[in-house]
Every structure is written in structure tokens, then in C-alpha cells.
């Protein structure tokens, strides 16, 4: 409804100030898009090329002789369903955990006045800045002592509630109007109820963003799943695909690019599925 109204209004304005400006915007966006998308296009076309053609300088944009060999070899050599399932389990659990736990704490930090709030927020921010590389070995020693080596749990637990998500949700929720929440409190609603019934629906765009970003980073993570997995059965998709950079000095580029395309598909699906929460105009009518 609202979207339709504003579109109609936009149309009026466009006519008044001349359709040229709209065209200018579209042209600018299209050029920017070409720049943004060209490496992706090359990755896609490269996955249908022979290794020799991929190495050629300058690169070709369309394959001279398109071939499906890379994909064929990929699926023949790879226990694809297993790696895909592993990736899905780990990424699904981490994404779900972050959505729930981070929005809970994000709400508390944004809208509840409680003792220790400042300190807790400071802790979250500090956690955000913790240098990852050096905690790696101690974390693995811990996982090893807990008996979580070679388990999905060992890949999931350390990342189940990241400070990034808490910060994002806290920032977004603090931008929501206080009035609705205060009104609910006056009506005697408990915090859990306010969170579930009011905050979560209003924060859907932010949850979508968090979902997209968490899914992306977890799906692509490489080093931690590799170190935790002790057998190929536990490998996630990116780890399994990295096997194709076959030597210290040799790389099968065709397989690598085909693998990159295969890895990216679920990420794009999630993006497309969640981006509908970025539609214009969440009805805020009735709020002041």
C-alpha cells in the first residue's frame, strides 16, 4: 500500500523534474553495476573454460570453447552431498544462534536500563576487537580438551553468538522509537513478550541483514573447520574445494572457479530470500 503510494508520488515528481534525471540515475547505477559485477561474471565464465584459457593474459570474457568438464570433474571427485550437508549444519546452527542470542542481548542493551549495562556493552565491544589469529591455537587446545575435535559442535559453539551481531542489533533497535516499548510496559507486558511481539517484528530488516552477513561469513569460513575436522567426512564445502589447489606451486584454476560458483549459490539464495525485508516503507503509522 505505502509503497504503491510513494511510487505514484515519485512518478509525479519525476515528470515534473524531467525523466532525464531518472535516466541518469539508472545509467549511473548500470555502469557501477558493470564495474561491481565484472569479476563475478569472469568467475562464472571462467568456470566453463580450460585451465590454459584461464591463465591467458589478457583474460577472455567469454570462453573460446565452453566446457562443462570442470563441473563434471568437481561432482565426480567430490562427495558433494556430504560436504554440502556439513556446511549447511554448521552454517544453519551458527546463523540461527546469532539471530536469537544477538537480538536478545541487543534489545537488552538498547532499550532496558539495568545495572551493568554499560559494562556489558563495553565487553561486547571489546570482544568485537579481539584479534582472531592469536587466539586460534589456545581455542583449539580448549576444543581438544573438551573432546570436541572432529565434531560439528566444535565448529559451531565458538561462533554461536558473535559480538558483531549484538552490536548490529543493539544499534538498530536503539533507533526504534521508545514509545511503543514504553506503551507496552505500561500495559504490563513482560520483557520477553515485548521482545518477541514488538521488537522482533520491527527489527526484521536488521535480522535479515544479520542473517545474510552471518550466513555468508560462516559459509565461507575455512581455517577453523579445517583444523577441527580430523577426517574428510567432517569437511565443509570450502575446505573440500580447497583441495583443488593441488600443490604448493600448482593450481587447477578451472576446478577452483567452478567450486567458487557452486559455493556461492546458497549465499545468493539466502540473499534473495531475505532481501524482501529491505522493501520500502515498514508501516510505522500510529507511532509518533
Amino acid at each position: 500500500m505505502t509503497a504503491a503510494v510513494s511510487r505514484a508520488r515519485g512518478g509525479h515528481r519525476a515528470r515534473r523534474s524531467g525523466g532525464n534525471r531518472v535516466w541518469a540515475v539508472y545509467t549511473a547505477l548500470a555502469i557501477a553495476l558493470a564495474v561491481a559485477g565484472s569479476p563475478f561474471a569472469w568467475m562464472l565464465s571462467g568456470s566453463f573454460k580450460t585451465d590454459a584459457e584461464i591463465r591467458r593474459i589478457p583474460p577472455t570474457w567469454l570462453p573460446d570453447q565452453a566446457t562443462l568438464d570442470n563441473y563434471r570433474e568437481l561432482f565426480e571427485r567430490l562427495d558433494f552431498p556430504r560436504y554440502f550437508a556439513n556446511s549447511l549444519i554448521v552454517t544453519g546452527a551458527v546463523t540461527a544462534g546469532n539471530l536469537v542470542f544477538c537480538s536478545m542481548l541487543g534489545y537488552a542493551l538498547a532499550k532496558i536500563d539495568f545495572p551493568g549495562r554499560q559494562a556489558l556493552f563495553a565487553l561486547v565491544m571489546a570482544a568485537l576487537m579481539v584479534p582472531g589469529a592469536v587466539t586460534f591455537v589456545p581455542l583449539f587446545v580448549l576444543i581438544s580438551n573438551l573432546g570436541l575435535v572432529d565434531t560439528h559442535l566444535g565448529m559451531i559453539l565458538p561462533f554461536l553468538a558473535g559480538p558483531f551481531g549484538v552490536f548490529l542489533m543493539r544499534q538498530y533497535i536503539s533507533g526504534l522509537p521508545d514509545e511503543v516499548i514504553d506503551a507496552a510496559r505500561v500495559d504490563g507486558a513482560g520483557e520477553l513478550r515485548i521482545f518477541a511481539r514488538i521488537v522482533v517484528p520491527l527489527a526484521r530488516p536488521a535480522l535479515a541483514a544479520l542473517g545474510i552477513l552471518t550466513f555468508l561469513s560462516t559459509w565461507n569460513s575455512f581455517l577453523w573447520p579445517l583444523v577441527v575436522a580430523q577426517s574428510e567426512e567432517r569437511y565443509t564445502l570450502p575446505v573440500a574445494l580447497a583441495l583443488y589447489s593441488i600443490g604448493q606451486n600448482q593450481t587447477r584454476f578451472g576446478l577452483l572457479l567452478a567450486g567458487a560458483v557452486v559455493v556461492v549459490v546458497p549465499v545468493l539464495v539466502v540473499f534473495v530470500a531475505l532481501q524482501r525485508f529491505f522493501v520500502q516503507g515498514i508501516a510505522m503509522t500510529g507511532l509518533k
Binding site: L223, V227, S245, G247
Partner: peptide
């Protein structure tokens, strides 16, 4: 167990530290 060259050094180092 096949290990990718990328990350192999880190994996062996971590395994030694974690006695795994």
C-alpha cells in the same frame, strides 16, 4: 585424510598443540 595446502601448516601446528 587429504588436507588443502592452504592452512596445512596451521592445521599441523594446532594438532601438535592440542595433542590431536
Amino acid at each position: 585424510t587429504a588436507i588443502p595446502w592452504d592452512g596445512a601448516h596451521d592445521k599441523i601446528a594446532s594438532a601438535i598443540a592440542g595433542r590431536a
